[in-house]
């Protein structure tokens, strides 16, 4: 590459780099700056306070509840969504009749916008009018309707359920694509070696798609941790703090209470927690299969 080419290279890269810098890195670094300054509605002139907000948040009950909620929420959704998505993919890869139609039907929740999904499920969960309670009562599980979203003991589970309902087709889609690329002769070889369906799944299919599983889990981990719309529309983080996770807390603190310094600090914490999540998973995955890469 000549000197002139190198200039040309930077020239072509410049617009993209500029856009990334302005719209990605500036706000990111700005968030970190903001977290060191006390800014609020009644005190519009920012004041540098160092780690004061961090200390305050770390000592608060809110933070610990939100951290716990975020972990439960993320693990719950990621584990169940991937298990369900994988199971659905295996099922839809069996060559069932009407397979194409079935796939389209299963994909429907994924296509709905998050807000629409949340509103739909608010009706479903409604204590008096909801489908769930009316079914439960008809089949005699309850005498009275349960307030799924209004009770601290059930709200998180109810929200996780909706997220999985909406999210599992996405995982399924990726798993299905991976399953269709599994070398069938390996599966047949295992069959003739005497392996039943379960052994074939664990000895041939899962090892063959383990990279896709890794990608899928990291992807859903990040998406779930940063989920906002469904939780916000369903519960606004309530009742009390029962379903408050980082994104809803950040939104509420920043745009509900206009405490931008605090919102920014929560943002920084959420990035740290997410990074730990992903790093932990990748380390576990690597040590579980600390074998040489397979071509």
């Amino acid at each position: 590459m000549t000197h002139k080419d190198r200039w040309l290279l930077w020239l072509f890269l410049a617009p993209t780099l500029l856009l990334i810098a302005v719209f990605l890195y500036y706000p990111m670094i700005g968030t970190v700056f903001e977290s060191f300054r006390d800014t609020s509605f009644i005190n519009p002139t920012p004041r540098f306070v160092g780690f004061e907000i961090y200390e305050k948040i770390l000592a608060s009950r809110d933070f610990h509840e939100i951290l716990r909620n975020s972990i439960i929420w993320t693990l719950g959704v990621v584990i169940l969504q991937n298990l369900l998505g994988f199971a659905a993919a295996v099922l839809l890869n069996q060559g069932l009749p009407m397979q194409g139609v079935l796939r389209a039907v299963v994909l429907m929740p994924f296509i709905l916008p998050g807000v629409v999904t949340a509103i739909l499920w608010r009706f479903m969960y409604d204590p008096q009018l909801g489908l769930i309670n009316s079914l439960m009562m008809r089949f005699g599980f309850f005498e009275d309707g349960a307030a799924w979203l209004a009770s601290s003991s059930t709200a998180m589970a109810a929200v996780i359920f909706v997220a999985i309902w909406k999210g599992f087709p996405f995982s399924m889609l990726i798993y299905l694509a991976a399953l269709q690329n599994v070398d069938q002769s390996q599966v047949e070889a295992a069959t003739l070696d005497g392996a039943g369906p379960v052994r074939r799944l664990f000895d041939v299919t899962i090892p063959a798609i383990k990279d896709v599983i890794l990608v899928n889990i990291v992807l859903t981990l990040i998406l779930t941790f940063n989920y906002f719309d469904i939780v916000w529309v369903l519960t606004r983080g309530g009742p009390q703090n029962a379903t408050h996770i980082f994104p809803t807390k950040i939104f509420e603190t920043g745009f509900g209470q206009f405490r931008f310094g605090e919102a920014a600090t929560y943002g920084v914490f959420s990035i740290i927690v997410l990074a730990i999540f992903v790093a932990l998973y990748v380390i576990v995955q690597k040590s579980a299969s600390n074998r040489r890469p397979v071509a």
Binding site: D183, S185, Q186, E188, A189, A190, L192, D193, D203, V204, P207, A208, K210, R291, V294, A295
Partner: peptide, 12 residues
Amino acid sequence: AMVFQNYALYPH
């Protein structure tokens, strides 16, 4: 026992 054209060995 069957031997396949592409050998069908388990890569992992």
